[in-house]
Nucleic acid binder design. Structure first.
Lengths: 165, 165
DNA sequence: ATATGTGCAAATTCTTTGCATTAGA
DNA sequence: TCTAATGCAAAGAATTTGCACATAT
């Protein structure tokens, strides 16, 4: 089957994303699942579903948001909180904080380390590759601190949301 | 009265900080109070007390922490929340977020823009002058975003808290 | 005089904890 | 089999809201 046949086939069935996106997301999920196992965490259908949600999301998601994107009854919100915490501990996801203090998570792999530009009004998010995390953490090390991590987020009002009050 | 007389006088009375620190903190408070007025906010004894607390603090403080450093019954915790929010709106204080999502505030003026290195265990904080806020916000502007702000914090375990579990 | 700020109480939102049950390795 | 993971319910921390009263301009 040739590539363009695949494309038109997908188009006919209203496949909800690009094939590249699909393959990318799947390999991200696989990579992450591998990491879970290597770290001694168990592979459950709930965790798989969460990783799929995170892989498809272009934005970092809060626990609530992740939960609401799961098919209903996939799992409890508490499980999402607990799993995201574990994922972060083993480095499968990256933790961020919104301006209002909400914790948000995105998959670490495939994207590399990055940060976000978030619209205060509508939540629209753009990826920002600029980062001085290493330099910051070096400063931390120079003070004798260990286990360094950092949080960096940019907020603003996006073009569509300007002009509102 | 000569400078050294002032110093020994202060020393005798157990003055709780250096005279330089005192003058600095006071001018910071005055500057901030001016800004309140210019912005149309009212000058109350509660707000003055909060600004004094923030001026003396070397760390960014949460609303709770600010409140607990006020003489008891200076004002309600709710008032602290509301005032800090106003202060941030007019730019008198700078908003930060701890890793756990708690919002923290420090005076904007006198310090210049800066960030913090915070110990997860004991809360000890060091000042970090490294910042790429301008660059980050430029990226934001390039996407058409306005009213840009950013949050950047570094976390770790400080030397004293290492070795604990 | 009048809009802004304050205090108190209660509501909300986000997140964590306890414990019995389920299910991966 | 045996420990980690889950669900449910409930607790907890941080923050916000409503409303009557007080106060700065």
């Amino acid at each position: 089957m040739a590539n363009d046949e695949v494309y038109s086939c997908l188009q006919e069935m209203n496949f909800p994303m690009s094939i590249e996106g699909f393959i990318m997301a799947n390999s991200l999920v696989d990579q992450s699942l591998n990491n879970l196992q290597k770290s001694g965490l168990r592979l459950t259908k709930q965790r798989k579903a969460m990783l799929e949600v995170l892989a498809k999301a272009e934005n970092p998601l809060s626990a609530e948001e992740t939960h609401s994107k799961l098919e209903s009854a996939t799992c409890d919100l508490v499980t999402v909180y607990r799993s995201l915490e574990q994922f972060e501990r083993i480095g499968v996801v990256q933790l961020g904080v919104r301006e209002n203090g909400t914790k948000v998570y995105c998959l670490s792999h495939g994207h590399g380390h990055h940060h976000h530009l978030t619209c205060r009004a509508c939540g629209r998010t753009e990826r920002v590759d600029l980062c001085i995390g290493e330099e910051l953490e070096d400063v931390g090390r120079s003070y004798g601190f260990t286990d360094l991590s950092h949080v960096m987020e940019v907020f603003g009002t996006c073009p569509e949301c300007q002009g509102g009050s």
